[in-house]
Every structure is written in C-alpha cells, then in structure tokens.
Simulated assay, not measured.
Amino acid sequence: MLKINHLELFAGIGGFRQAMELLASDYNFTSHCVGFSEIDPYAVRSYKSNFSDVETKEIGDIIAFNEDPKNITSLPDFDLLTGGFPCQSFSMMGKQKGFLDKRGNVFFEIIKILEIKKPKFVLLENVRNLTTHNKGETIKIVLSSLKEAGYKYIHWDVFDTNDFGLAQRRNRVYIFASREKLDNNFAFSKNEIISVFKTISKNANLERQKDVLDILEKEVDKSFYLSEIIKPTILADGSASFKSKSEINCLIAKPLTATMVKMHRACQDNYYSIDFINSPNPYDYLSQKFSKEELKEKEIRKLTPKEAYLLQGFSENFFNNAKQAGVSNHQLYKQAGNAASVNTIYAILYYLFIYKKINEG
C-alpha cells in the first residue's frame, strides 16, 4: 500500500497537509505528517485545532530549529517536503526586496533540511511574481539551489485556484523537484494537471464551487456590512495617486489577501450587495448597471471569515474548529489570505502520486 510521509514547512493553517490527508482518505493510502513549522501563534492554534496527531513534531521557528543540525537529523525520515515559503519579499504588493529581505532568506532554511534529510521530492508554493522578480534572477537562484541540493529534475508552472473548483482567481507558482529521474511522459504543467483533475471523481472529498453564490450566506452578522462612512472609499475608482476600476458582486472572487480585514478598495477585495445575494435570479441581476451613487445607497458587505476559508478549499468543519479554538475574525481573515489553496495542492498531489505513481518506483 502507498505510504507518504511528509514535512510541512511554513505551514500556516495546513493547506498542504489538508490536501494530502483528503487525498489519502479518498484513495485509501497512508499519509503521515512528521512535523510542521509555523511561527504565527494564531495560525498554529487553527492548525492544531484540526490536526491533533501527537506524533507530528511542532518545529516552530525554522531558523532557530535549523541552528543546530542535530535537530534536522533527529527528524523522522520523510518522502516529501512541502511549503509555501514567505512570499512578501516577492509579492507585487510588497517592496520586492527578495533575498535581501530576511523573510526571503528563509528559503535557504529549506535547503539546509534537504541537504541533510534528502527526501525524494519537494513541492513549494509562492506568488506568481517570484517568476519575474529581479528580471528572473530570483527564480534562477531558487532552482539552482534545489539542483545543488541534489534535485536534478525540477519543474514549475503557475496555477490558478479557479481551475480547480474554487470560486477565486489566485495565481500561484508551484515548484516540484525530484531526486529521482521521472518517466519521459512526466509533464508538470498547468494544462496537464487541469486535464487530469477533470477526471477526478465528483465524490472526492473536496469543496467545489461554480461561483461565489455557492458560498455566500444569505444572513450574516451586521458587523460585516459596510458603514455609510466607508462605502465611498471602498467604491471609489482610486484616488489621485492610485487609479483602479472598482467592482463589486464578482462571481469569481478576486485573490484573497492577508490584509483583507482592513477592507481595501473594491478593486482589491471582495464585496457583495445584499440585493444581489438575495436576488431570485442573481445572474440576471448582474446584467443591470448601477452608477456609483446608486451603489452607495445599497447594503453592501464584505466576505465573512468562513466564506474566505471556503474559497481556499477548507471545509466548514475546518473553519468551525479554528473558530471554536478562540481564533478571532481578524486572524481568521489573515489565515485565509495567507493560505495555499487546498484544491490546487490536491490536484497536484493526485497527479504526482495517484496518476503518475511517482512514489512506487
């Protein structure tokens, strides 16, 4: 029987682990997370409220952990290292300092572990801007570092969450590296994995959404409604120094951000009018055109933290566990915005381990 042990670095709330455990359950194989690293205490709380395996080592701060090579050596052996290493250094919304930024430098902590533990496979996630940052030099450093660590077979592509059954546009680069030669028909590409994902049974244990109407709740607490004071700012088409096209009621959500709790403009975050949500025919409603002044008269709300979790592929039960653990809405928003999309990872893992059977060689 297939068995996959993996180490989850920069875990957040556990997107990689959730995808792996769902896949293992759906296809009857054994999955074990030997350890996870995460420094945000609220993310750790949400993580542990959903994953309670006492045998999973809590690494904490990966930099402090790696200071003593014996800590790395003491980790149980594992087949796969996963991680969405901090992306602020490469994000279009950040200052793009890359490897000059300490958060960018933590990538090399991954390399330290790979050089000592030598797992067969690596799967990493980051923002799309990683591929163009510093005129392409940053991605070259990532790939060459993996190759120097013994991973000669490296593939990467940019994947959109919306292609994998979630109502959110979210482009992220995924990098897959192997120490072992893969068969000649191996193609780690967006189009190939989308094609294979379409063959996955509808009974797979995944959240699936045609559009946001599948996740938007009819009744939510009034605290999620925009005040009359904030509406003009949210709906404005930018300002003197920032021009944008404000849009609400998007059927496919804009990319969730870790700072969505602050309520950015409608070009950056997701807002919905109550008459759209409650319309007997929301699709016809969208054909109507409203002026800015007319929109300001409507009741408009932001996404709830639960809806944000769902748009990332986490189940309602997963969200409820985090909420019941005492995690605030502020932190739940941040966690959803930082998370790796479960369905995208599930699709990639399915392609690797079920469709291509790379761990059976």
Rank of each mutant, 00 (worst) to 15 (best):
E299K: 14
N126H: 07
F121H: 11
A322F: 04
H330E: 13
N270Y: 04
T304V: 11
M20I: 03
Y151D: 04
I234Y: 05
K356P: 02
G104V: 10
A187H: 12
P282I: 04
R103K: 14
N184F: 09
E180G: 00
I111A: 06
L295E: 05
Y47W: 07
T56F: 00
Y47C: 01
R103T: 10
V106I: 15
L303P: 02
F164K: 05
N134A: 13
E217T: 05
D26C: 11
D269E: 07
L310E: 02
R265E: 06
E137D: 10
E21P: 00
F16H: 08
R128L: 12
K306S: 04
K323L: 08
R128Y: 11
N129F: 08
K118S: 08
R208D: 05
Q209R: 00
Y174H: 15
A258S: 12
K334D: 00
N5W: 03
S223E: 15
V342M: 11
S241V: 08
S227F: 06
Y333I: 09
N321A: 11
S328T: 15
K262S: 08
R265T: 11
N191H: 09
M93R: 03
K296S: 13
N185G: 03
K117G: 03
C250M: 14
I193N: 02
N321G: 02
K289D: 02
N270W: 01
C267P: 00
T30K: 14
R301T: 08
K102Q: 11
A236K: 12
D157R: 02
Y47R: 05
L146R: 04
L216M: 07
I63E: 15
F99W: 01
D61W: 03
S279C: 14
F276V: 08
A167N: 09
Y47T: 00
V142N: 02
Q288T: 13
P86R: 05
K3H: 14
A339V: 10
N191E: 13
L7F: 10
L7T: 12
E299I: 06
K262G: 03
I154T: 08
N249T: 10
N270T: 03
I110L: 04
K254I: 09
V212I: 15
Y355A: 12
K181G: 04
A149N: 05
G12L: 04
N134D: 15
K296C: 14
N278H: 14
N270L: 01
S341E: 07
G35K: 13
E219F: 06
L146E: 02
A240R: 10
M1R: 14
C87T: 11
K97E: 12
S244P: 02
S328E: 14
S74Q: 12
D237S: 14
L124E: 09
K102W: 00
H32T: 13
A253M: 13
E115H: 11
F188R: 01
N5L: 07
I234N: 04
S178E: 02
T56M: 13
L206Q: 06
F121L: 06
N321Q: 12
K222C: 07
S145Y: 03
L311C: 15
T56L: 01
T132F: 02
F107P: 07
N338R: 05
S189G: 03
H264Y: 10
E58N: 09
R103L: 08
D269P: 04
